[in-house]
């Protein structure tokens, strides 16, 4: 059974409510429909309900698969805004919220923030910037987390790591040149993401071109400081470094290069890149030379799950990402 099959099986056990603010988009509607029809999620289409229902009929889709929320429903809108502003630490007040929720993206996120949805899934009609901004304004960041970031899950044929062929890597998509504090945030978020999605016990390596002081310089200092901050913030997590990539994932290399106790060295299942140059190149090397399937990027760091999918993605890929985000939402309720 592939990792995606396992995730699909998990989703079916506990279908989550996923809000779709770009429901009129054909690819999005089809992906939501398939995921709902097959029992992985409860899809909620957010927008102009009359128009969405008419598109649904035109496309030959059964209305009964969906729940519909009309953003013109003033009674419901006022109810969720009222519930939202009563939450602690929210950024927007009632009046700006009323204006922002004319946009289905913000409406869906307010629904999620107040518990009427478990995930907001967008990214075809809205840019990544739109989704990140709305997420930061409405959903907010987890306590202690200073940046939004992402991880991807690589399934690498022939790789014999501590999770078989799987390795989680981040950030390869969002945070360009993280500070030490941001690196710590990325590592902490990544641990939480793999716990909620895959039930792994995370072993997170922060990688560099040096292993425990074998090299020197500011690029290394940034990673060393990031490890220190992460350990101070979340001593419950196994986050260690700085390690070279091979010392992180190979027990033989770790035995030679890591001359102290480590819960991570040689058996890391999560890799944190020092910056986006490394992250982007690293993932492409894994894909090109390792012939790996890469799932994601999964956004992380928000208080709840927000998903930004690729505009060019086919329906099958969007559906996979919907199901992944739903399983993350279900998993994150457990801790």
């Amino acid at each position: 059974m592939s990792v995606l099959d396992e995730i699909y099986a998990k989703a079916k056990l506990n279908p989550q409510k996923v809000a779709f603010p770009e429901a009129e988009n054909e690819k999005m509607m089809l992906a939501a429909y398939e995921a709902g029809k097959e029992g992985y999620i409860i899809p909620i289409l957010v927008g102009n309900t009359a128009k969405i229902k008419s598109l649904c009929a035109e496309r030959g889709l059964e209305e009964a698969v969906f729940e519909f929320v009309d953003i013109a429903d003033e009674e419901y809108k006022n109810k969720i805004i009222e519930a939202y502003v009563a939450l602690p630490d929210t950024m927007l007040k009632q009046k700006p919220l009323a204006r922002r929720t004319q946009d289905p993206l913000y409406f869906a996120m307010v629904m999620e923030a107040v518990g009427d949805a478990d995930v907001t899934f967008a990214g075809i009609d809205n840019t990544t910037g739109d989704v990140l901004l709305a997420g930061q304004m409405i959903i907010g960041l987890k306590p202690g987390i200073s940046t939004i970031s992402s991880i991807g899950l690589c399934d690498i044929p022939g790789f014999k790591g501590s999770e078989g062929t799987l390795l989680a890597v981040g950030d390869s998509a969002v945070c360009t040149n993280p500070t030490s504090e941001q690196l710590a945030s990325i590592a902490i978020s990544a641990c939480d993401t793999v716990s909620s999605l895959l039930d792994w016990e995370p072993r997170c390596a922060m990688v560099s071109y040096s292993t425990l002081g074998s090299g020197q310089g500011e690029l290394i200092d940034k990673v060393v400081e990031g490890v220190k901050i992460a350990n101070e913030l979340r001593p419950d997590l196994a986050i260690d470094g700085e390690f070279q990539f091979d010392a992180a994932i190979s027990p033989a290399v770790a035995a030679k290069k890591v001359n102290r106790e480590s819960r991570v060295a040689g058996k890391a299942n999560v890799i944190i890149w020092p910056d986006l140059n490394v992250g982007n190149v690293g993932v492409k090397l894994i894909q090109q030379f390792g012939k790996a399937d890469a799932y994601g990027p999964m956004l992380q760091g928000f208080n709840k799950v927000v998903c930004d999918c690729s505009r060019g993605a086919p329906v099958s890929e969007i559906k996979g990402n919907i199901v992944i985000s739903a399983v993350r939402a279900a998993g994150s309720k457990n801790y």
């Binding site: 007040k93 700006p96 304004m137 939004i148």
Partner: peptide, 15 residues
């Protein structure tokens, strides 16, 4: 400051 603080500032201006 961070981009998140800038988001907070834009929100405060709106509020």
């Amino acid at each position: 400051g961070t981009s998140v603080q800038m988001v907070g500032l834009v929100s405060e201006i709106e509020n």
